[in-house]
Write a protein that binds this DNA or RNA. Structure first.
Lengths: 185, 185
DNA sequence: AGTATAGGTGAACGATTGTTCACCGTCAAC
DNA sequence: GTTGACGGTGAACAATCGTTCACCTATACT
């Protein structure tokens, strides 16, 4: 296990960066100077960052999970190195401040493979493009549907043939765009 | 904005906990003792934790995103308090060490609403229960399917009528259970 | 042989850390 | 009116922080 992996594993279990003294034993050195040299390299390599003053800051690397291309390749042996990794949170969330989660209620988007009980990641906004899945206020009620626009008219389409398109009587206000979905088994 | 929110917002932007000096200005105090008292309260309340020695550790609260029950309730006004929140990563990942991500290739699980291009969260294991979605090695090939067992026989079922069940000729080894799915738009 | 260079030790440094103590005002309860 | 709890100030504390310097030992290159 190299220095980077040791750092990451420390961070994951302790939820913070180690101090230089802790890295002494973590890396197996006897001099803090040796640690400082290692850290200097890691900072240059972009593995970790340093604060305005000194403190070590983790990069997104520190919360990543192995990403294997396809199921067909199988799993790597435990301990075997993986080159591609993914940070789940930053994959799903682009703008944290304006992001909200919703629990899906109903099957109106089932043909888009958004099922009852799924959780959608939505980003607050007031505009959308044709084909976006949006959360909108139609005549006072909120729903999640496909956003459609044609010849200046706007309406919402469900992804379920048992439901009908929704044409607003008075108003259709977009409040959020659905950026992702997740589901747990 | 109360102390807890200030801490969280500091942590989210700086990726680490503030020092007592930083909290001095963050909270608007003039004495570190005032800070210490606040922290003491927050530790009791379980908002933050302390290390084996002194250092402040964030709880899962620090990476959470507002979770709104249902779409029908709409979005809260910006700045309005939300009581329910969710940590995406810990929602999807239970055992980090044995968790792997796969990009889904093909439509064989489409009726389970796992589509081509989705990313599945899989947990390495060697046993599964009837109905689990598993990644398995069947006669040398890896696939993702429903795991079925009856009368001592084991086989795999796709979630797509265009595909046939897979009965192993020689071996069927489970390598992982699918614990979740995610998709980005 | 001579000499960089990389990677390590060991000791020292001032700065900052988290903690603790004595003290002070305000408010509510008795 | 006195008391006690609460929330704050200000100053001090040893311990630890990250940094830096001189030095040592291999290995590789002229």
């Amino acid at each position: 296990m190299d220095y980077q992996e040791k750092l990451i594993s420390f961070y994951q279990s302790r939820k913070r960066m180690p101090t230089y003294s802790e890295m002494l034993s973590l890396f197996g050195f006897k001099s803090k100077n040796a640690v400082a040299r290692v850290i200097e390299k890691l900072v240059e390599a972009g593995v970790v960052t340093k604060d305005k003053l000194g403190k070590l800051i983790p990069t997104s690397l520190f919360d990543e999970i192995p990403l294997l291309g396809s199921v067909k390749a199988g799993l790597p042996a435990p301990g075997e190195a993986v080159d591609d990794t993914l940070n789940i949170e930053s994959y799903l969330v682009r703008k944290r401040e304006s992001t909200y989660l919703f629990e899906v209620d109903g099957d109106s988007m089932i043909d888009a493979h958004i099922a009852n009980g799924d959780i959608v990641i939505a980003e607050r906004t007031s505009s959308a493009r044709q084909g976006d899945i949006v959360i909108a206020n139609v005549d006072g009620e909120f729903t999640m549907k496909y956003f459609c626009t044609k010849n200046g008219k706007v309406w919402l389409e469900p992804a379920n043939k048992n439901f009908k398109p929704i044409y607003p009587e008075h108003e259709l206000t977009i409040v959020a765009i659905v950026r992702g979905v997740m589901r747990k088994y």
